[in-house]
Amino acid sequence: MCLAIPAQVREILPDGMARVGLDGVVKEISTALVGDLAVGDYVIVHVGFALSKIDAVEAERTLALLAEAAGAPAEAMA
């Protein structure tokens, strides 16, 4: 379960709601579970609720680690 997808906050609405966008698809969700958000933030959306904010710095770090995991054997083989 737990199908969830990152989307970007486009507009903060009253009553703990926000409009988020995902590649041109726009949806209204509740942000009551994640507290303060700013337009431009990415949140993980599950059943119409934001569950957590995506940490952009950690995302970059993950991508660097992925590249490292992918690069190691290539160098060894070269």
Binding site: I5, L22, D23, G24, V25, K27
Partner: peptide, 12 residues
């Protein structure tokens, strides 16, 4: 299309 992929992701 990217929007079709995105909508499908949202709806599972």
């Amino acid at each position: 299309k990217a929007q079709v992929v995105a909508a499908c992701e949202l709806l599972g």
